[in-house]
Amino acid sequence: MALAKRIIPCLDVDNGRVVKGVNFVDIRDAGNPVEVAAKYNAAGADEITFLDITASSDNRETIYSVVEEVASQVFIPLTVGGGVRKVEDVRSLLNAGADKVAINTAAVFTPELVKEASQYFGSQCIVVAIDAKQVSAEGEQLKWNIFTHGGRKDAGIDAVEWAIKMAEYGAGELLVTSMDRDGTKIGFNLPLTKAITEAVNIPVIASGGVGNLQHLADGVLKGGADAVLAASIFHFGEYTVAEAKQYMADQGIEVRL
């Protein structure tokens, strides 16, 4: 008996609609966040993460109504990220019903936001999203830097040092995405995951690169992650969350079945 490793499906939401397509056999409206979240809850997801990718700032409000609606009908933890810039944004998301708020780029430009938000709302609801990319050349000691702007701009900050700093600033959890692996389906960047899980004492979610169930298991067994996040393998019906859990359980990983 112990704490279970978590499986977290991640949904991109644009203007209040789930995008990138969610391909469940028996779903009526794959773009409806409530329906998709309810489906994942029924499938045994341990949490759900919404990433708001709404580009126009005029439509920022739509994410609040999405969160409100989902939180009133789906009773598992919800993390919401994307475009969080101020303490006010954190407050609005929490008030709408998010359990945790992920801060990404804003943490890089104004790290004080993490401190302020965690002091105000509690560390348990502040997730810092770390987008990292390998910058060491082959043969050199591995090194990853923080990247912003969807992986295009090197912020010049060492990812492991950044993780330690964010934990000190009050982050309750880290969502570590390998920008090298994101979308590749060749598996998590395990050395990165491991370097960060060993450096901090807060939970770490591994993200970026999942293509099969062994990748999820490796994130925990080899990367030391406390939770694994994936999008496409679940959305397109390649695997169900239940299959993923059974697969992990068969490898001796504690999961909630």
């Binding site: 008996m1 112990a2 704490l3 279970a4 490793k5 978590r6 341990d46 560390s123 348990q124 309750g172 959890e173 004492n201 807060i202 939970p203 406390d226 939770a227 909630r256």
Partner: peptide, 15 residues
């Protein structure tokens, strides 16, 4: 052998 993170965050059993 297994380092336990703080906070405990996630699903645990209640006996």
């Amino acid at each position: 052998r297994e380092r336990l993170k703080i906070p405990q965050m996630g699903w645990n059993q209640i006996n």
